[in-house]
């Protein structure tokens, strides 16, 4: 079967409960917005394929499954992530302060070279703002990440956020490939979820192999 993309990036969304992560995800993947608090039930990850410099990039974006509520994200969530979007809510000071804690979490559990980005969501509700744009930018500088203010509701900067992160991952990857001489080493990992397409037990054709 022909591959429908050139790269596959695993991305994560992280941040306090209620900052709008699930809405950001839905806005990006389905271009939809739901005003009621979306229960995260049944949302594992979403996929959207984008194009950058003529390359098809499949973004697989994982939601927290609500496990951020009591800060009980499984370390398994962070495995294999290539990019992480840290989300706070500009109308919620606490969610902004907690970004530091989330970053510490990432440093502990995610790959050390994971690309990060900070977004301040809900910038459509200026009248309830608690965190100035300036403080967001300062924090991003402190951690050496890119920064955007977004609104999932008004569809502001959502595509930009994902495209920026994807572009950063892509260029890092291409640099690494050049250094490694063009091919990523094959580590022989096994993914068991081949959904029913597993090969037949090959003992059934042993005799052929023998002759």
């Amino acid at each position: 079967m022909a591959k429908t993309y050139d790269y596959l990036f695993k991305l994560l969304l992280i941040g306090d409960s209620g900052v709008g992560k699930t809405c950001v995800l839905f806005r990006f993947s389905d271009d939809s917005f739901n005003n009621s608090f979306i229960s995260t039930i049944g949302i594992d990850f979403k996929i959207r394929t984008i194009e950058l410099d003529g390359k098809k990039i499949k973004l697989q974006i994982w939601d927290t499954a609500g496990q951020e509520r009591f800060r009980t994200i499984t370390t398994a969530y962070y495995r294999g992530a290539m990019g992480i979007i840290l989300v706070y809510d500009i109308t919620n000071e606490r969610s902004f302060e907690n970004i530091k804690n989330w970053i510490r979490n990432i440093e502990e559990h995610a790959a050390s070279d994971v690309e990060r980005m900070i977004i301040g969501n809900k910038c459509d509700i200026e009248e309830r703002r608690e965190v100035s744009r300036d403080r967001g930018e300062q924090l991003a500088i402190e951690y050496g990440t890119k920064f955007l203010e977004t609104s999932a509701k008004a569809n502001l900067n959502i595509d930009e956020a994902f495209f920026t992160l994807a572009r950063d991952i892509k260029s890092k990857m291409e640099q690494n490939e050049m250094r490694a001489g063009g091919s990523v080493s094959n580590t022989g990992r096994v993914n068991v979820g081949g959904s029913g397409t597993q090969k037949k037990s090959f003992f059934s054709n042993w005799s052929c192999n023998l002759l």
């Binding site: 995260t40 049944g42 499954a65 398994a76």
Partner: peptide, 26 residues
């Protein structure tokens, strides 16, 4: 990969995806 403890976490994630509420240190 990452050891056998990973498996329990993976099942917990599935539970969470289907609405189970998680609270550690409790």
């Amino acid at each position: 990969l990452y050891g056998c403890g990973e498996l329990s976490q993976c099942f917990c994630r599935l539970a969470a995806v289907f609405g189970s509420l998680y609270c550690l240190g409790r």
